[in-house]
Design a protein around this nucleic acid. Structure first.
Lengths: 291, 291
DNA sequence: CGATTTATCTGACTAAAGTCAGATATCATG
DNA sequence: CATGATATCTGACTTTAGTCAGATAAATCG
């Protein structure tokens, strides 16, 4: 007789609401009401468009206006008309605002650190938290196009190689593989996409072009904590969209039968198996898709 | 370059605070302000002492008083003086209150169910949520003495047997083992303790007495999601305390070398290895402790 | 250009939550 | 039984959050 899943979810809710009050409430502790602090933090995190902040925090325009005024009176922010549309306003931190924001960040980090310090089995706990955060934050996953040499991209690639090394019978060594040049995965030849979930990289895919009408899909990877959310498909679709933008007519990719879930995905989304088209030692299966 | 643990914790906080607003807010949806609904739910969950509720919800006594009055006016609760101390008051649900509480419970359950339905890989997600909830709710774990035939106890025993079956080379079959009679694990001969975390059983231990000065520790088990919190030690200490209450002078236990972490615990808490004292086919190591 | 739409702001509200200083009744103690 | 401690209640506040109907100014469209 297993435990009731609903009871388990409710227990999680209880545990988290009790604890999170004391956990994410770095908003408190600097003598500023919650709403004001949330706006300041949203601006600090790069949200500058007033409408975007209002939308993000779910605030009424009147309330928003007052909160902004309050922060302005405190000298923490300044608002200027949007350069392209003077009806809209853009808010940005002043010097004092930046320092106040840093103080909030430091508080948040200290709380997170304390939280971790109070717990044993940290890596296991973090993995569970990653999984829950990925599931809960599913709707907020955004695909960002970036240079494959950026940190978040490099993190994903590192994890991808590590996973291949674990899953291939004889391991995996990038230097023996046909590692694409970064320039082939940057516009105009190609692109590199990283899936970001609340600021953390959780997946990637590369579109490697050579300038012609044929390009390759490379380095499709999704973090273990984010599997089952349909992210791989979303990455592939986004890569295909970019390929079409770049006037690419045919996509190809190579893969290995040690990765059956990937092959499954390709077969389910319009790819057909073709003959080997390169001499890379690792792949044993090859696919193609006409756009 | 692994991800920053602090960033991971903060991402979890963000994901959870965003989602939990829409997740545990079964409090809403019945046209009652949050504070009032929280008090009603606390009473429904068995908190009856006004001071206890106030403490649990962190409310000012004046505010609490008004909220109680509001619920009384609605006819959902009644308050009576505490039988042993007429200064204190005890609140309980009326018939209407019980039905209103049930409506909140149904809402909560429906939301939990919806939440689960929105996610794939449910068992994996639930396991991660259990782990997080155990870690976060660590301070709220309570040890309850109960009959080993109660549901929560039986759940723990079932999980215990399943774990032995997984870990012993040749499996585990209770019927071949010396399964203690329930009556030997109930006062006055012995006791059975279950660790409850926010309403869910996550560990147990049995004290099996025979009426004399010697008793046995049996069925020490901690749920995987709750390991590393020091719960096994806490269960053992509680069992020893009860043994002392029952005037037991010597405790014994048998275990198996396939469970090294258990042996480690015994050695670290005053137990010494002794010779085999029974003919049960499963154990291969035996311990004793003088109280 | 004039009419309409859009983004923000202002003023005038309400509701909810929280604070605090007594008031009141009961209990515990010497 | 007087004294002080304790638990709750009451009244008189303040703060925060949120709502809503215009006002204002800039953009967009026919």
């Amino acid at each position: 007789m297993p435990l009731d899943p609903i009871a388990r979810v409710r227990r999680f809710n209880r545990a988290v609401t009790t604890e999170v009050g004391a956990l994410d409430m770095s908003f408190l502790g600097r003598g500023r009401p919650l709403g004001t602090a949330r706006v300041l933090n949203a601006i600090g995190h790069g949200q500058s468009d007033v409408a975007a902040i209002r939308d993000y925090l779910g605030l009424d325009s009147g309330l928003m206006s007052r909160l902004l005024r309050g922060l302005e009176d405190e000298g923490l922010i300044e608002t200027v008309p949007h350069p392209e549309d003077a009806r809209r306003r853009v808010a940005r931190l002043t010097k004092a605002g930046r320092s106040e924001f840093r103080a909030y960040e430091a508080l948040s980090n200290a709380q997170a650190k304390d939280f971790l310090a109070r717990h044993s089995r940290q890596e296991e706990l973090l993995r569970a938290m990653d999984l829950v955060a990925s599931a809960l934050g599913r709707g907020r996953i955004v695909l960002e196009e970036m240079d494959p040499r950026d940190d978040d991209a490099k993190y994903c690639l590192g994890e991808y190689y590590a996973e291949l090394a674990r899953r291939f019978e004889n391991g995996f060594d990038v230097s023996l593989s046909r590692d694409p040049e970064a320039v082939d995965m940057v516009r105009p030849r190609g692109a590199f996409l990283v899936a970001m979930s609340d600021g953390l990289p959780i997946g990637c895919v590369g579109l490697k072009g050579g300038g012609g009408e044929v390009a390759e899909i490379k380095r499709l990877w999704v973090a273990p904590s984010a599997r089952g959310l349909g992210l791989a498909r979303r990455l592939m679709e986004a890569a295909e969209d970019i390929a079409r933008e770049l006037s690419i007519k045919v996509l190809r990719l190579d893969t290995n039968s040690a990765l059956p879930e990937a092959q499954q995905l390709y077969r389910n989304s319009g790819w057909t198996e073709i003959a080997r088209f390169n001499d890379d030692p690792y792949p044993d299966t090859f696919f193609e898709k006409h756009l």
